[in-house]
Write a protein that binds this DNA or RNA. Structure first.
Lengths: 210, 210
DNA sequence: AGTAAATTGGGGTAATCACCTGAGTGCTGA
DNA sequence: TCAGCACTCAGGTGATTACCCCAATTTACT
């Protein structure tokens, strides 16, 4: 048998912490050598223990999981990292991707899948849940949209007609028309209806203020 | 001081169970007299202990929280009930509302809020989290839409034009037009764009298969 | 049987959309 | 300096939508 994989868990929600540890123990092959409920403790613990893998919640008091990772890397800690995040907003996931975090999971992911991912990352691999991967692909596509195009998309989502959108953005109706045409071409749809469905599904537009 | 409020907790996820109990203990005034990780145990426990309040997860092996409640009521158990559900689909919430469950919360709700709700329900009140209430209002509105109108809404969401939708549903374009107009009037919007945004935001249409 | 609601569909009009070609400006990196 | 891109706008055409009118038929329920 391999020696046990040493793991540090950090999550400000005690219940998630306990649940994950229990699942990992049930699976075997790992040893949870440290637990933290805030970013600061997590960071010092990771520095001190140099675990094979640190599993971090993203929203923690003191420092987010991402901040912990970046800081730990500045100290050349050899650990690998898995981030578990509750809110899978495109922006957050993009940041994690840029930071080249080895493993990313949503909290809604089945615990078994997360456990498997942690082991994989600890073994030197990468593990990104399908849900996260899907969102990232959407982000990829959103990044191909220009600022102005996103603004036009937002305006349309608010129910503005081309005319109203042109007034809102202070440009000609024809310009709005051009942008919308380009949006539909870029997203591969042929109607405003599909455009909005795609945009909302992929989180390209902000629905909260509508 | 009042005597301690006697509570039974049931959740197949041990971590949620522990987290909630911890939070309740921290708040004080309550005593968790029973824990169950499946519907069957929960039911027998409630019958045996007649707690002031039973807090039930909706998705449990054996029997769902709702089934437990309905069965417990058949036995005239005097307990009051709080349901905590992970998936807040409109259908599920509507069923809970119909069953007149005293308290309904999403798992994403802050623990403090859930605790406060449990105490309120145990005291004879009702507690429905704002998020749930909002979804229910949307359901209310969706129920005012006829079957055909919902079908037309789905068709539009799939990006079908009036013509394509008419062919898909085997009716005249003019009928689609009528339905669409009625939809917009009922939902208080004046454009297809707004119609879709409203529909998606409120879960009136199924986005998964688009 | 009778009333209400749902579903169907026709006519018509003004507005808007979808899509095209073309073009001027300004910024940026090679 | 020059190509490339983003942004801007125009003209034009056919399709479609938004919205109003009205009415026949079916379904549901009292």
């Amino acid at each position: 048998m391999d020696p046990l994989v040493r793991i540090v868990l950090a999550d400000d929600h005690p219940l998630s912490l306990a649940g994950l540890e229990e699942a990992l123990n049930a699976r075997g092959g790992v040893k949870v050598v440290g637990r933290a409920t805030n970013g600061i403790d997590a960071l010092s613990m990771i520095k001190r223990l140099s675990p094979d893998c640190a599993v971090l919640d993203l929203s923690m008091p003191g420092a987010t999981g991402l901040e912990v990772i970046l800081e730990a890397r500045r100290w050349s800690v050899p650990s690998r990292f898995v981030v578990v995040t509750g809110t899978g907003t495109p922006q957050v996931l993009q940041e994690l991707k840029n930071a080249e975090v080895s493993g990313v999971f949503l909290k809604s992911t089945p615990v078994d899948e997360i456990c498997a991912g942690i082991l994989k990352v600890a073994a030197g691999g990468t593990a990104v849940s399908p849900a996260v991967r899907k969102i990232l692909e959407a982000v990829e596509q959103a990044n191909n949209l220009t600022t102005r195009e996103l603004q036009v998309l937002q305006a349309i989502a608010r129910g503005l007609t081309n005319r109203a959108a042109s007034q809102a953005l202070g440009i000609s109706i024809k310009t709005i028309d051009t942008h919308r045409t380009n949006l539909m071409r870029k997203l591969g749809v042929r109607s405003t209806a599909s455009l909005l469905v795609r945009a909302m599904r992929d989180g390209l537009i902000d629905v909260s203020d509508i």
